[in-house]
Design a protein around this nucleic acid. Structure first.
Lengths: 328, 328
DNA sequence: CTGAAAGCGCTTACAG
DNA sequence: CTGAAAGCGCTTACAG
């Protein structure tokens, strides 16, 4: 490129990085270089750039599973938003496994990503805090870790679960159960708190009824849990996540439980499955685009400015009322 | 790393790249270096590696939309398979737009990917053939381009549509329509051919009835097309892709058309939507894992060996029969 | 068998 | 205002 234009590589670099003014490059020279670059469709070699300056205009994103509809959509929004800002993203799936997160993360850092967006797995506090000591900026998504000095973007999970539960109460359901994961992650804890608080506030403290199961084999264990809760007289269920909702719906079809006559249902996140289930399922919609854009913005800010201020963003969900929670 | 071990960087490089034998490095030295590397968890800098040797152990994958369930699953399988082989992948979404494909591709090449897996968009023959002139290996996925000398992995689309159509015929449907995209891409053309051939072979040539619409606004245009075909007496519909199927199902619910009594339905690819729709929808299942693994394998072969042989793989679909195509 | 050295394509102080 | 030069961390002929 430099030889084609007949100038030094330094000049090319200055101009193409918008530092022309700073280095007082003559207007005409800058124009000329820009033209040559455009003409030959010049693309600077990112590997060389990375090696010298540490910047690759590349970020890494680790979610539990990119094929899960919720994360698939988030990841898609991130792709679009990052690309608008000149960045490209790697996406990896942790399967809720801290070990795997670790290995994906080091493989990404190794490949020179400028920053990371991470959906932390259970017991990953140590991993995250060791990452914080490095110089790769990081933003947590979906699940803040309270005691760590790290930026995060997440739903107001407490409020979301509260509203969902209260909606069921208002529609005449009293014996309302919730199904969640038995994990310490903040998003789940907050949702459980929201459910409990809503029950309590409505004088239903004695009817609080939580079913738990493990992430692995969710399809199988969810059946058992629902079966038990249904048998114990539950009138409505709040499914604590997207995955739980899907697994639960499969079971409800299999078991032939009539919704909402025998059992009211509210889930999380939405998607085609919620619309096609018969009757359509009420759910808490997360503002996926906002979550994606905010996390990318905060990360890129941390990368481009040396501004180290921590930002924690909480966004509000929206209850999309469908037929599965009709008044009884 | 080299200074820590007290040997030259050359030795480290030889040993870590498994070239120890070739360069006749002493067994003990090799062992020793391996140990030090393991101990300090040494990760070679990929940017430097790329700059010097041209290899980054990174591939790029461009699909129409990573949030589409079909591609989300394929992409997930690719991630797992590639990572087993020490590779990491970038994923990008083209939105069926050749311009966008172009810009994603150059951004990826620019970032030093060793190879590309590409779901080609309509009219991208030129783009692909210009890519072929470069030295980045490339594998087409889902949609082979016949006249180009390029490896590809795809479903046997002709056969899949043939089997799906014949299934409807056997179950007593005669006036069977198909809905597809009005595009020249091979996968769609082959599916249309399969449908036509099956109709013809069963003496239903006169009832061949194809509805087309554009990729954009599929939800809106699909309603009109279905409405028209339904009004004209169609007894069953074959939805030509996953996206069409989903859009179609939304319309069937909205219009209150009873499936399969008023209209038999068969779709493509499957997913939760097909299971939760009431009644559950018959579909052609693509062997997603095989598609993903094959395409990664062929690409990595092309990258690692200088073997330039072109491989075209066609895999067979499987008809998953559910309630939407019950015998009438 | 091992080390010294060149060079991949950039960015960035430094000198003029 | 512009150019020459160092150096990022590797790989790879080359010399010994």
């Amino acid at each position: 490129m430099a030889q084609k234009a007949g100038v030094s590589t330094a000049l090319v670099s200055f101009v193409l990085n918008g530092q022309g003014h700073k280095y007082r490059v003559k207007e005409e020279t800058a124009e000329y270089i820009l033209n040559v670059a455009r003409e030959m469709n010049y693309q600077p070699n990112i590997a060389a750039k990375k090696l010298r300056s540490g910047r690759s205009e590349t970020i890494g994103v680790v979610v539990p599973d990119i094929s899960n509809p919720f994360f698939a959509h988030i990841v898609r929004c991130m792709e679009d938003w990052a690309s608008q800002r000149g960045y490209v993203a790697f996406f990896g799936s942790s399967d809720e496994n801290t070990q795997k997160t670790q290995s994906i993360v080091s493989s990404l850092i190794n490949r020179g990503v400028d920053g990371l967006i991470l959906v932390p797995t259970e017991h990953s506090e140590e991993l995250v805090s060791s990452l914080l000591k490095g110089n790769t900026p990081i933003v947590l998504l979906d699940r803040p870790i309270r005691d760590l000095n790290v930026s995060s973007v997440a739903l107001n999970n407490f409020q979301a679960a509260y509203v969902a539960t209260e909606h069921l109460v208002k529609n005449g359901y009293r014996n309302i159960g919730m199904i969640g994961y038995d994990i310490a992650l903040s998003h789940m804890q907050d949702r459980l708190r929201g459910y409990r608080k809503a029950m309590d506030d409505n004088g239903l403290y004695d009817l609080i009824n939580i079913g738990y199961f493990k992430y692995v084999n969710s399809a199988r264990t969810v059946s058992r849990v629902i079966q038990k809760m249904f048998a114990s007289g539950v009138e409505a269920l709040l499914f604590g996540t997207n995955t739980i909702s899907i697994a639960g719906m499969y079971y409800l079809i299999e078991a032939g439980i009539r919704v909402p006559d025998e059992l009211g249902v509210v889930g999380f996140d939405g998607g085609e499955a919620f619309d096609f289930f018969n009757p359509s399922v009420t759910y808490v919609r997360q503002p996926i685009e906002v979550l994606a854009q905010k996390s990318v913005d905060i990360l890129l800010d941390a990368i481009t400015s040396s501004n180290v201020s921590i930002q924690s963003v909480q966004v509000e969900g929206e209850l999309v009322v469908q037929a599965s929670s009709r008044p009884r």
